[in-house]
């Protein structure tokens, strides 16, 4: 009975509280108005200093000729006209796009297949999942050195294995036709576990009753995967592919450690090219113009990607 009384009194409107609401001071009104902005201010400050400012400063620098220590000379759009006229730029751009397409394609297909295989939650699969995840937590520099050693054309393990089955040596990192694919291989190997784990968790969030309904609908296994699993995990696949596209367009470490853009510029990519112009040749203006180009390329692919694919993604 006492409880009921308590509930009833809590539900009643208290006149005192109402008048207090009306008497709010000007100061507290202003505080209420700016509170949300104060809350997000620290995050916005970090974003401004480390992301927005560098972007605008980069665009600003791209109109100058500057070697980092000397005088800055305004040259208008000359860096851009030089860049667009440069054969090397177009090769670097096509290298980057080729690398991106190959990495994303193999990354997505292989991790999807691996995830489908490892999806069942057995003890062996949990161990295999951990093993597949290990490359992701290893530092890129270590990974690059290990693969350099494996891919050495004279002493490398890969060529030794090929010789065992009677195949001649491959210039993994020295043949201009092969080198870029070797970098793709390293990147796919490193990212496979991560992508697989994310896809597995998406697969496990697909409700089991859908597969029961499918079983009652006489659905073959492959068709259930194609018509139920894939559409249900499409938001995850969409997100992963986009992350992979952006990461692949920004590739740097493997190029820097394993090939330095060679042989014959065949593995030179946009970011490595920026590094070369900035810190090898000290042409900061031109490097900035390349940076703007990279931003445009990433923006372009992201936009296309959203336009083409987002309609086919199922969001709950």
């Amino acid at each position: 009975m006492l409880r009921m009384e308590k509930i009833a009194s809590a539900a009643r409107v208290h006149p005192a509280a109402q008048t207090q609401l009306q008497k709010k001071s000007l100061f507290s009104k202003i505080l209420t108005a700016i509170r949300p902005y104060l809350m997000v201010a620290p995050a916005m400050a970090v974003f401004g200093v480390f992301i927005l400012y560098p972007i605008f400063y980069m665009i600003y620098l791209s109109f100058f000729d500057w070697n980092l220590i000397g005088e800055m000379k305004y040259i208008g759009l000359e860096n851009y006209t030089d860049m667009l006229a440069d054969k090397d730029f177009w090769q670097v751009l096509s290298n980057s796009v080729y690398y991106m397409v190959m990495v994303v394609l193999f990354q997505m297909v292989l991790s999807l297949l691996l995830a489908a295989y490892l999806n069942r939650n057995t003890r062996v699969n949990r161990i295999l999942q951990s093993i597949a995840f290990t490359p992701y937590i290893t530092s890129m520099v270590s990974v690059a050195f290990i693969w350099m050693w494996l891919m050495d054309s004279d002493y490398g393990l890969l060529n030794y294995l090929l010789s065992l089955i009677g195949l001649g040596p491959v210039g993994w990192l020295s043949d201009p036709k092969v080198a870029m694919n070797s970098l793709v291989l390293v990147s796919v190997w490193k990212g496979l576990g991560y992508n697989t784990i994310i896809i597995i968790s998406a697969m496990q969030s697909v409700p089991g009753y859908l597969y029961e309904a499918a079983a009652l609908d006489k659905t073959p296994k492959w068709k259930a995967f194609w018509e139920i699993t894939l559409p249900m995990i499409s938001p995850t696949l969409f997100f992963l592919a986009l992350m992979n596209i952006i990461a692949a367009l920004k590739v740097f470490e493997t190029v820097n450690i394993m090939t330095q853009g060679g042989p014959m510029n065949s593995t030179n990519t946009l970011v490595y090219n920026i590094y070369q112009y900035g810190f090898d040749y000290f042409k900061i203006g031109y490097a900035s113009a390349l940076g703007v180009a990279l931003m445009v390329v990433i923006g372009f692919f992201t936009l296309i990607y959203f336009r083409v694919l987002s309609k086919r993604v199922y969001y709950n």
Partner: peptide, 26 residues
Amino acid sequence: IAMVFQNYALYPTMTVRDNIEFGLKN
């Protein structure tokens, strides 16, 4: 046999038509 589930277990990515047609196709 056909079964109606408590939460209906409709395929959320398919339209009503595809939901109904799915079993017939199979």
